[in-house]
Amino acid sequence: MNGTEAPEPASARATEAPASERRILPVGDSALLVELPCAAEAEALHAELVRLRAAGVFPAVRDLVPAARTVLLDGLTEPVHQVAARLAALPVPPVPPRTHEVVELPVRYDGPDLAEVADHWGVPVADVPRIHADLEFRVAFCGFAPGFGYLTGLPERYAVPRHATPRAAVPAGSVALAGPYTGVYPRSSPGGWQLIGRTEAVLWDHTRTPAALLSPGSRVRFRILGEAA
């Protein structure tokens, strides 16, 4: 029941529901869970709710928690049936591609699973950093640990499985892959993702404002370190 850094890939069932379907599920007396057909729609709904909340329009809510293909609204102050009715009818534009600054993370691509990832991708080991660093990522959601972001942007053909047996300790700053996601471990913790490199960037520092380097919606690029050395 502890936090897991390894959710089921959302892309696996993106076609399960028709594109128009938005399920609104009850979560006790003051929360609602909106289930979307795919990860992109969940990201779009979360972005729109954040925008509407910031504008003071809607909804009055303590926590907006995006995840693989849901958005949780927790701590609603209005009656949930009213909020549910408004959510059902809410027009949601697609996420605009360039709304956030790009966070650049310098990475030394020397992770212990580089060869295994290259194997899964069917490319030479030396190509993995180039392919990964050429992509732009977006933080779809956070979880598992404070400041741990689930980054989307890896094409589906590059999805990799997690390790069957998680490592007892993954070092802080490890850049890792699992399913369709890239993640960076904010602190040393157990973990089952494939480690491809390390960054010196500090993902979480509670004395800093904001404490989290990455939050939902952040755009991220990885820069290859040590290539010229």
């Binding site: 089921e8 069932r13 979560v27 006790g28 289930e35 995840a67 693989a68 849901t70």
Partner: peptide
């Protein structure tokens, strides 16, 4: 019986 993609949870869940 399929796996549930991670989703937000509340206290008391």
């Amino acid at each position: 019986t399929r796996e549930l993609p991670s989703e937000g949870v509340v206290s008391g869940a």
